[in-house]
Design a protein around this nucleic acid. Structure first.
Length: 568
RNA sequence: UGACCUAUGGUGUAAUGGUAACACAGCAGAUUUUGAUUCUGUCAUUCUAGGUUCGAGCCCUAGUAGGUCAACCA
């Protein structure tokens, strides 16, 4: 009964403003009850977590309302766009777990767009302007004063047509002429001051090759593409809000009475602290070598997060948790980290790994003996089973799990103190060996043979205040581990006014490579991108650059650590 | 100082004219063979001023603050 109630509560959870709009449209039978969205990336960079928000929104809305969602590449600027980006975008969307209805390209519509432009010229609603960029910009003046009409604004239809065809046919050089919509040079909205529809561009297009000498601008192409695809809800980010009247103006002049028309709606883009989110900046970090490519685990790109060990489910949960609204927002990176911990806690197998090893010798344990102890794979998942791991006289433990002069609250190994070796025995610190510099090289202990985990003996049930992880020295696998920290040391690197360039705020310690780590032998069977919890340390995944000789693990995120916090 | 948009705990998001709630973060405690997880408790919120109304976070007006717009980018 209680579960039923919970389900009802889930379903009746409050709607975001876009869901409200859609439900209202559905109720009024707008678009005959259809819901059709689209995700429209420009293939000029890799997708990042901000795009993930948009993807989850567009695909999620289509899913929720039994509609469709297209993937449409907005490829109207061949000077910036490349096939490599198309491929990566498709891979990232699939990895996130979404399937598009159709894969489409704005360039699929270049012929139709051209025909509509001719139609607008014939209706006296578009004209060819021979002025250069500077002159046009000057005539637009500023938002507070009226604009100045171009001297070419009232050319005859015949002349406009002739020139536009010539532009298409490559008669005129780049930059010499453009096609403008004749809207309103006095509009307080700058986008309405006779916006540019087409520019001359002699660039090779990744799909249409050298067919075109002119390419449409975003404002002329986007709404019409939505219209052609019969998109119902065209969802974009806030900075396009001022474009909406123009979006509608073109459709007013193109769509016929009674035809379904897309409506543009705007939401606030995602901002995350301690990172940057603009494609331009991310490209710069890649090109200038501040990171090792678009999929560097420190990047907020989808491919970076994937390599870091984030799961698709954790990113979807994140998108859901942050919500959708219209006000500017900055999400704490801790929310993303919480989402991945939440998922990995339920799904990641536990293994033992010692990142900063010190040798520990159990003096009263038989030399040469190896026994196997049983370890649960995941206490949060009862179906995950268990495994056997080797235990011997010499093991490695974490250097910070031992202290010579320990404070009272230190629950780990000390001289004369007891601690449990997880899944094995209780040991007691006896003595230490140091090198000439005073560094501890060996810790000698004794163990209580009756305290083996799971043996059921009275002694095994004894409580000791600490439990630490370990690996058998002769059986462990030596691996590399990469510890990642936030890429920027400033909360808002892009907005920091105290530095000339955001790159000055890059965290110099964002990557730390450890090459003397020991992991239990069961990892030998791990595959690239497999995720684990290194017990008591954090979540890690196997990097794709691993070889059978040298495994490389990336730290996704640490475990929450109230001990280190308390120490500060 | 033109147009458009926005304003709720530290950060997000709800409350649809009727008791301001949920999550993250923080703090305190319980449990724990991971100082994790889990559980409990706790701190903290409607930009300002008017107005409408029995009643306003919500509606209206004005102000203030922030964002966007003057690419042949998207």
């Amino acid at each position: 009964m209680k579960i039923e109630n919970n389900n009802i509560e889930e379903e009746e959870k409050s709607l975001n403003f876009l869901e409200e709009i859609i439900e209202n449209d559905l109720k009024n039978n707008v678009n005959n009850g259809r819901v059709h969205t689209r995700f429209p990336p420009e293939p000029n960079g890799y997708l990042h977590i901000g795009h993930a928000k948009s993807i989850c929104l567009n695909f999620g809305l289509a899913d929720k309302y039994k509609g469709l969602c297209n993937l449409r590449f907005d490829d109207t600027n061949p000077s910036k766009e490349e096939q490599e980006y198309v491929d990566s975008i498709k891979e990232d969307i699939k990895w996130l777990g979404f399937e598009w209805h159709k894969e489409l390209y704005t360039s699929d519509y270049f012929d139709q767009l051209f025909d509509w432009a001719v139609m607008l010229i014939k209706q006296g609603k578009a004209y060819v302007d021979d002025q250069n960029q500077e002159e046009i910009s000057k005539q637009r003046t500023s938002p507070t004063e009226p604009g100045i009409e171009s001297p070419f604004r009232n050319r005859s239809v015949e002349e406009n047509l002739k020139l536009f065809y010539e532009m298409r046919d490559g008669i005129h050089p780049e930059g010499s002429r453009i096609l403008r919509a004749k809207v309103d040079m006095n509009s307080p909205n700058m986008h309405m001051r006779d916006p540019i529809m087409y520019r001359i561009m002699r660039a090779h297009h990744h799909r249409t090759g050298d067919k075109w000498n002119i390419y449409p601008m975003y404002d002329y192409a986007h709404g019409q593409s939505d219209f052609i695809e019969q998109i119902t809800h065209s969802i974009c980010t806030l900075e396009f809000e001022n474009h909406r009247p123009l979006y509608d103006w073109f459709l007013d002049n193109i769509a016929q009475e009674g035809e379904d028309r897309p409506k543009q709606r705007e939401f606030a883009r995602l901002n995350l602290n301690y990172t940057v989110m603009s494609k331009r900046k991310l490209l710069e970090l890649v090109k200038d070598g501040f990171v090792n490519g678009w999929d560097d685990p420190r990047m907020p790109t989808i491919s970076g997060l994937r390599r870091r060990g984030y799961t698709p489910a954790s990113i979807r949960a994140f998108a859901k948790r942050i919500g959708v609204a219209k006000r500017e927002n900055v999400i704490d990176i801790a929310v993303l980290e919480h989402c991945v911990r939440e998922d990995l806690n339920k799904t990641a197998p536990r293994i033992m790994a010692v990142l900063n090893p010190v040798k520990l010798i159990i003096d009263n344990y038989p030399e040469g003996k190896t026994e196997y102890v049983t370890a649960e794979n995941n206490p949060e998942d009862e179906n995950s089973g268990s495994r056997e791991m080797p235990f011997a006289r010499e093991i490695y433990i974490e250097r910070e799990d031992f202290m010579e002069d320990a404070p009272k609250k230190f629950f780990r190994l000390t001289l004369g103190g007891e601690v449990r070796l997880k899944n094995a025995y209780i040991i007691k610190g006896e003595s230490i060996v140091k090198d000439a510099d005073g560094n501890i090289t060996e810790i000698h202990c004794t163990y209580d043979v009756d305290t083996k985990s799971g043996s059921g003996s009275e002694a095994s049930k004894r409580k000791v205040k600490g439990t630490i992880h370990w690996v058998s020295a002769k059986d462990a696998v030596k691996v590399d581990v990469k510890l990642y920290d936030r890429l920027f040391s400033d909360e808002n690197p892009a907005g920091n006014k105290e530095v000339a360039d955001y790159k000055e705020l890059i965290n110099p310690d964002s990557l730390q490579t450890l090459s003397n780590c020991f992991v239990e032998p069961s990892v030998m069977s791990a595959k690239s991108e497999d995720r684990f919890q290194f017990q008591r340390t954090g979540y890690f995944c196997l990097d794709k650059d691993s070889t059978p000789e040298k495994l490389i693990f990336n730290r996704t995120v640490t475990l929450k650590d109230s001990w280190s916090k308390k120490q500060k």
